[in-house]
Write a protein that binds this DNA or RNA. Structure first.
Lengths: 151, 151
DNA sequence: GTTATTTTTTTGTTAAAACATATAACATTT
DNA sequence: AAATGTTATATGTTTTAACAAAAAAATAAC
């Protein structure tokens, strides 16, 4: 569906505006779908993202700075995000012995189990959208987004 | 910059995942830039969006339902969004005489003035990104996003 | 070796989002 | 016209985000 119809626009929009609205709207659709997947597991999208980063560490701990720089949206509330995961026993948190300012965050087995259970659903979610495109179109969309941001 | 570099990914990502991350990240970049424009005017992106919808009504009032269906992200808090605009005298709110359940929201002259002042900055913002693309590429990005959502 | 500076994380406060529930007006049924 | 149902908006409560500022540890300066 065209973006003008999604927002019931009465007037014609120029292409710059349409792209912006389309990116914003597409993100909403992706997020809404993804939250439906996460809901039964009682974790938020941001919390999931942190778990993914920690799993990607393959056993070595991540401090707050490392977590932040790998997140999509740099939030200043990484501490409280990790707090939530800690309450659910999905991560552990320890002071780093070499530099006692730093905090070593590790994913627990329970955290890994949650991710493993989610993996096929996440892949299905990702492919649900990209299956609408040929592989050339998918590559094209990806590189056009990067060119659009131009940084 | 490639999305893998933006999030400092150590492993190769498949295209489905890259597109998702790219859409989410691009949206963050757009929103961050836009918020910088709005900041001096002390209105949020959502509030701006409502003002745009109201201006688009060209003098005829919009009720809460109309506002909601034209917003990008359907929020259940339209009432409180309008509350904020009312406090700043950017809109008026009146009970509809024909159907006293409905609320007629109108943009004020002050609201129109704010939008007029913002207009050139908003256009500049929109074009800042799309200028990185040729007009064919822009059209292509737009239609690929719509095809990707496929609804 | 004490003081200042910088880095890293945490905390406090205020604002906004999310979600469920409530109220109020209108419409329909009996 | 009372009861029931529906629609439109509002409110209460709980989470989450945003921003500033504080705290704690390491590093640098004197």
């Amino acid at each position: 569906m065209k973006i003008e119809d999604e927002i019931k626009s009465t007037i014609a929009l120029d292409i710059s505006k349409k792209i912006i609205l389309n990116v914003l709207y597409t993100q909403n659709v992706i997020i809404d779908n993804f939250n439906d997947i996460l809901k039964p597991y009682d974790i938020s999208g941001e919390q999931y993202n942190v778990l993914r980063i920690l799993r990607g560490q393959k056993g070595s701990p991540a401090n707050m700075f490392v977590i932040q720089e790998r997140m999509l949206a740099r939030t200043s509330n990484t501490t409280r995000l990790v707090d939530k995961l800690l309450l659910k026993n999905l991560v552990t948190r320890n002071v780093c012995p070499e530099n006692r300012r730093k905090i070593e965050v590790l994913i627990t087995q329970k955290g890994l189990d949650v991710l493993n259970e989610l993996d096929p659903k996440v892949i299905e979610h990702e492919e649900f959208f990209s299956n609408n495109l040929s592989s050339q179109e998918a590559e094209q969309l990806n590189s056009l987004l990067e060119k659009y941001r131009n940084k």
